[in-house]
Structure formats: structure tokens, C-alpha cells
Design a protein around this nucleic acid. Sequence first.
DNA 1: GTTAAATTTTAGCACAGCCTAAATTGCATA
DNA 2: TATGCAATTTAGGCTGTGCTAAAATTTAAC
Lengths: 223, 223
Amino acid sequence: MKKPVLSESQEDYLKEIFKLQEINDHVSMQDLARELNVRPPSVTGMIKKLCAMDLVEHEPYKGVSLTVTGEKIALEVLRHHRLLELYLARHLNYSWDEIHEEAERLEHVISEKFEAAISELMDDPTHDPHGDPIPSVDLEIPDTPNLTPAIALKKGDAMHISRVMTQDKDILNLLSRLELIPGQPIVYSGSDAAGIRLKVADNQYLIPHAIAKLIWCKEQEAN
Amino acid sequence: MKKPVLSESQEDYLKEIFKLQEINDHVSMQDLARELNVRPPSVTGMIKKLCAMDLVEHEPYKGVSLTVTGEKIALEVLRHHRLLELYLARHLNYSWDEIHEEAERLEHVISEKFEAAISELMDDPTHDPHGDPIPSVDLEIPDTPNLTPAIALKKGDAMHISRVMTQDKDILNLLSRLELIPGQPIVYSGSDAAGIRLKVADNQYLIPHAIAKLIWCKEQEAN
DNA sequence: GTTAAATTTTAGCACAGCCTAAATTGCATA
DNA sequence: TATGCAATTTAGGCTGTGCTAAAATTTAAC
């Protein structure tokens, strides 16, 4: 079974279905349309094609899900994306909020050779700068066990940040300015209607719920 | 005057017109079609669009040439391409014959930021691994004075290689195996019907005319 | 359980970039 | 100067991916 050559558009559809599937097993056309910045009829049309290629399954009026083959391609694109993000940050001095857009364009055009080269250069990393897991060469997702959302912490909990689930540039800027970035140790010191209060690097901030819910933490043990 | 957003295809047309213009001031549709791997009617169609955008000038049945704006865009793409080639070779361990294809795809998607980052990392280089000049940030081509084609050398001439004008992978492989690469000192020891004889790094080879004519040299003085 | 709202699909169209076949133009050579 | 060949353009079509408007279906609310 040889892998089909896909358009950038098609790769984007598969990647987006994968990401939405992590949250909700059945992906709606509407959600896809929103994420991909296209109108619902365009999604229906493209899904039909991907269906004919056996990359997705589609129950009309129900939703879509990836086939095994489709998921493999999605993971490959995701691997490209996240490796690129880390590479841009580490080797080309990109800031946290700049890496996503650039990776979004590069992910479709780099070769296997390029992928392998940057992966090796970075010692086959398992997570990108947002803490998102990078699928391995054989497309396994490294498991990130026991993540706790920051909003679910209890007073006095000492954790460190593991993942920040947004690509919004202004939120990322805010967080990086506060040093609320993956790897950083924090202490949870309470919450109220306005948000949660976190101690980080000798400072304490109030983080509004809207932002706090994007932050995931893990136990202090390892790094 | 803001710069128009162009498709990858359109960028390729402009780049190719530029490269052909270096050889022959008026570029024919046929040459363009050959270089771009499309049919002549496709070229006519695209040229019309580029004409309407004031990026090229076209005298029907005569030929095309770039406008000032068109040339700027071509130079920008060329800068991307050649910076990328050098970057891939230097930082990602690409071999000579692999860089062109990868750069061909990447050149259209990298941002100004990416361009600036790799240029700075390499200390604003002026030539790519083939010896082709890299347009500067303000799109000036560094002049490469007094280049002599290897086939025009005289017996005993000691030069070094400055430029290799091909992207053919097998020719590049052959040359790199023989260490006939830019920067390398050579001595010309004669020619005959079969080709020219060059001494390089303690070896002497016969180089067929077809290949020798791609090699350009300059005086021994500086590097 | 009926009906209104939301979601999804169908139908039909637009635009980019390529194609082939045929018509046109320009040039070289007899 | 005429004529035939090569280069170019025009005409018309195809494919991919998007769009809007309207029809069909599902879901939710009363």
C-alpha cells in the first residue's frame, strides 16, 4: 500500500480532523469549517474526496473520523509541524508566538530528509515549545501521563507547567512574558471568581480563568 | 507601492524569466515553457496576467522581459533559493545534489523573518554552494568579476573554481566526487577532442567538454 | 409530538493554472 | 517575393478548491 500524494489542503483537513478527534471522537463539519477557515459546503466536498481515498470515514449528517491510513498521514504532518516549531525556536531564534505560522506553511513542503535532519539535530525531541507531543518517526505519540489543568489544582500544589494549549499569539506573548512556559515550576496559591493565583519565579500573578484553563501541569518530580 | 501577493507559480515564472534574461535579453515563450515544464499556451496565459500586474512586459510574438517591480520579486525569490541552498548544505548536512530540489519548494513559503534568520546565521553570505551569487537584502547582486570558463583556459593556468552552472544531480555528484567544487584550486594541463585535462588535489582528470563548459574559474589571488 | 432552529448536503458557479487543437504571425530560405 | 516551417496565440476544456443559495435532515424546545 503506497501512500497517496495529497494537496496541502488535504493534509490540513486530515491534521485538523486529528486534532479535533482528540477532543471529540466524532468531528462535525461545522467545527472543521471553523478551524480550516472555509465554509461548510467546502468541507462536505473535500470530505467526499478524502472518503473516496479511504482516508476518512463519513456517516452523512453524523460526522467524520480518520481511517488508520488517514491518521498516519495526519500524524506525519503533525510531526513536521511540531518538529519545525521546536527547530525555529531553538535554532533560528524565533519567539514563542512566531513559530506556529511559519511551521504551518513549512510543514507541507519539507522532505523526509529535512524532517530527519532537524530531528537528529535536536536529538529526537518528544515535545514542542508549547509542550505538545511530537509523534515519533514511526508515528507513535509519546504519552504525557497525569497532566492536570491548572484550574483544577489545590491550594499549595507545587507543579510545573507541561503544556500550553493555544496558538493565540497575544496569549502566548502574555504567558511568555510572565514566564508561564513549559518546564517552569509553579505554586498554586488559590482561586476566586476573577481567576487563579499562581506563584512563578518569585512573582505571583492572577491568571483569568479563560487563560488558566489553557495551562496544564504535571508533578514536580522529573523535568 | 505595495508588493502584490503572488502564487508560487507566478514566482516561478518571474524567477525563470530573470535567469533566462541573464543569458538572452529577450526571453522566448518556448524557453520559458521548457524551463517551467509547461506547454507554450500556458505560458502565454500566465504572461498576460503578469503583464496586467506590471511585472513583465510583453510584445506579442516577440518576447518578454521583467519590469523593475518584476525583477525585484525575482531577485527576492532567488535570494531565498540560494540562501536556502547554502543553509541546507551548511547546517543540515545536505549534499550538493540534494539542496536544489528542497530549496525549490521552500523558497516560496519562508517568511522575511526566516530569510533574515538564516542569512544572519551564515554572516550574510554572497554565494551559494554552486558559486551562484546571492542577492543582498536590498537585492543587489554581488559582482563576480573576471570569471573564465574552464574550456577557455591556457595550458599551465592555475585558477580556482568559482562557479558550477548546473543543477543536474548526477553531474553535481560526479563533480563533487572529483572535488571540482567552488573554492578548489586547479591547474589546466591541456585539451583535446575528448575534453580538457585538469589537475585538482593531486589528481588529474579528463573532463568532457559537455561538463567542462559548466565550470567557471577565477584567478588564484583571493579566496 | 410538533415545530423551529441548527446543521449538513446538494446544486450551481468562479477562479487559477494547466492542457490540446487549431489559427495566426514571423522568419528564413529558395 | 513567395512559401513553408517554427513560434506564438486563441479557443475551448479539465481539475482542484473554494463560494453562495437553497434543499434536506437532525436536534432541540415547547
